[in-house]
């Protein structure tokens, strides 16, 4: 099991969020996180990369370079954009195996997992699933 230990930049996100017990501060952090993320190239803001089922528009673009996965994302809403930025940051730079085994349970501890709810108007759970699907696809590509 790969856990957050050994991934210092991921530990930093965890630490940052843990230090913000207040809802409002967490939102502020997420909004900032989204704003600081480079905007996704317009050519990738297309249906093919759109996460369906979210009331806001949410895109996830994967790349596979030298055996590692790199994600970028964007959204027209600030909080989903921030959460997507965190997820893509966590999962970028991992091999497909590492991504599939990555223990994301810390998201729950830091209060982000509540946004990954099953509510159909909230596509963030689908974003998470899509990240794993890409990891699976790249894994088979790697083998092939």
């Amino acid at each position: 099991m790969v856990n957050k230990m050994g991934y210092p930049e991921k530990e930093q996100i965890s630490k940052d969020l843990m230090a913000l017990p207040d809802h409002q501060d967490k939102f502020k952090y997420l909004i900032k996180k989204g704003k600081n993320q480079p905007e996704l190239n317009q050519e990738f803001k297309i249906e093919k990369f759109r996460i369906q089922g979210c009331m806001s528009k949410l895109w996830l673009h994967p790349q596979f370079k030298e055996g590692k996965i790199y994600f970028s994302s964007d959204s027209d809403a600030a909080i989903p954009k921030g959460i997507a930025a965190i997820l893509t940051e966590i999962y970028s730079g991992l091999t497909p195996d590492e991504a599939l085994e990555f223990d994301s349970s810390f998201l729950k501890e830091v209060g982000v997992a509540q946004h990954l709810s099953m509510n159909r108007s909230n596509g963030l759970v689908k974003l998470y699933e899509q990240i794993r699907l890409y990891a699976l696809a790249f894994k088979s590509l790697n083998r092939g």
């Binding site: 939102f27 809403a77 946004h115």
Partner: peptide, 15 residues
């Protein structure tokens, strides 16, 4: 002006 309805729903839920 700035907050998307998705953001509005999420933030108000926390209240």
């Amino acid at each position: 002006q700035e907050a998307h309805p998705h953001d509005i729903g999420t933030i108000l839920d926390s209240e």
